[in-house]
Amino acid sequence: MGKVVLVTGVARPLGARFARRVRREPGVGRVVGVDAHPPPGPLGDAEFVRADIRQPAIGKVLAEHAVDTVVHMDLHGTGLTPGGGGRGAVKETNVIGTMQLLGACQKAPSVSRLVIKSTTSVYGSAPRDPAVFDEATPARSLPGGGFAKDAVEVEGYVRGFARRRPDVAVTVLRFAHILGPAAESPLAAYFSLPVLPTVLGYDPRLQFVHDDDVMEALCLAAAEPRAGFLNAGTFNIAGGGVLPLSQCARRLGRPTVPTLLPAIRWGGGALRAVGLADFSPEQLRLLTHGRVVATGHAREVLGFTPGRTTAQTLEAFARYRGPGVLPPAKLAQAVDRFARLLPGKPVPSAQAAGAGYEKEVRRDG
């Protein structure tokens, strides 16, 4: 009959999309989507079971459906749950929900594979961080709160589960910031603002991953290992190359307002209060110091290569969100006209300069 895959967090767009996607994978006979709230739309051939992973009843779902593969996607960085509630409800789902799910998996003899959707935020963002984090690099400054702290706790519980159930293949995917139509993240909300407040004197380096690549990485981790590749382990997942925040703003057509850090903290609290953006301490550290991770381990051991670079992911996100206040094409034309009026040497066009930067990013990636 094929594998039975249980997907948590299908009330979120990304979880619902994965439930539909994995059902089409060869060897998958049944997909059970689980959440405490109904999904936003149909799950295709996947079956929806209304169950709260924070409750012991999740164990009955595993047993009744003889689940052999669990893909845990009910980990979220946004400040609201699908059914309402603030940061406290999100933390309870992230941490307590994961503990309850792992306890149920430990007691379920049918479970043979566990995939966890985690985040590169577990590395933190600090001024003395290494230029590039790999999976074995310890964080210089552990996250003190928010989603990053939740993810650190979750990964600790997952390591404990792996020791207690060595017969289960456990895969942890640490995703860079996800951008795309199904993405729900504080950074996506930040990039959607008409004007981007930045920290004065800093231009952090950032990486992104497209939600299409998120689907492919999750499917690969949930599948049986291919010859020469091992699915178990911890892997960084990010698009190739990096972009500084200033370049991101220009490509999105968003003007920036360099601001002192205390003022951003104050203004960020106001934006968070009205639900426009989440300027948590974790987010502010990212916008100050940035974060870059190595992805060679995923390519060599998991066999995953992203289909889009960081720059291409941002470009796709910009098309989806629509033009900003300063569309890049019009801005480039204005810069070219101004440059032609200046005396002295000819200045290369903004379009040519952008192409040169793209080449540099691809080389560095």
Rank of each mutant, 00 (worst) to 15 (best):
L114C: 09
A108C: 06
I116D: 01
L80N: 13
G103E: 09
L80C: 13
L114H: 05
K91H: 15
S112C: 13
T78E: 11
V90E: 03
N94F: 08
G85Y: 06
T78G: 11
G86Y: 07
T120A: 06
K107I: 10
G86W: 10
V95R: 00
I116G: 00
Q100D: 05
P109Q: 00
G97T: 03
G103L: 07
M99I: 03
T120V: 14
A89M: 07
G88E: 14
N94T: 04
G103H: 11
L102H: 01
E92R: 10
G103V: 03
G86Q: 09
T120P: 09
L114V: 05
G84D: 14
C105N: 13
R87S: 15
A89E: 14
G85R: 01
M99N: 01
G83L: 03
M99G: 03
V95E: 00
M99Y: 01
N94V: 09
G83A: 05
T98H: 02
R87M: 14
Q100R: 15
A108H: 02
K117P: 04
V90I: 08
A108K: 02
A89S: 12
C105R: 07
E92S: 11
L114W: 00
L80Y: 13
G103F: 01
S110V: 06
S110A: 15
P82C: 05
S110E: 13
S118D: 05
N94D: 13
K91D: 14
S110M: 10
V90W: 02
I96E: 15
V95D: 05
K91R: 15
L101E: 02
K107R: 15
V111A: 07
P109H: 02
T98A: 02
T120L: 08
Q106E: 12
M99Q: 12
L101C: 00
V111Q: 06
G103S: 04
V111R: 07
I116A: 02
K117I: 09
I96Q: 13
T119W: 11
Q106H: 08
P109I: 03
G88I: 09
P82G: 06
A104D: 05
S118H: 06
K107D: 14
L102G: 01
S118N: 11
N94R: 05
T119N: 14
G86S: 09
I96R: 12
N94K: 03
V95S: 01
L102I: 03
S110T: 15
T81W: 06
R87F: 11
V95L: 06
G85T: 03
A104Q: 12
I96V: 15
L114D: 07
M99V: 08
C105V: 09
G83S: 06
I96N: 07
C105I: 12
V115Y: 04
K117N: 15
R113Y: 10
K117F: 13
K117Q: 11
G97F: 06
T119V: 10
V95F: 01
G79L: 15
P82T: 01
V95N: 04
P82S: 04
K107G: 13
S112K: 12
V115G: 08
T81I: 03
T98G: 00
T120D: 13
V95G: 06
G83M: 08
A108F: 00
S110Q: 15
K117A: 15
V115W: 00
A89Q: 13
E92K: 05
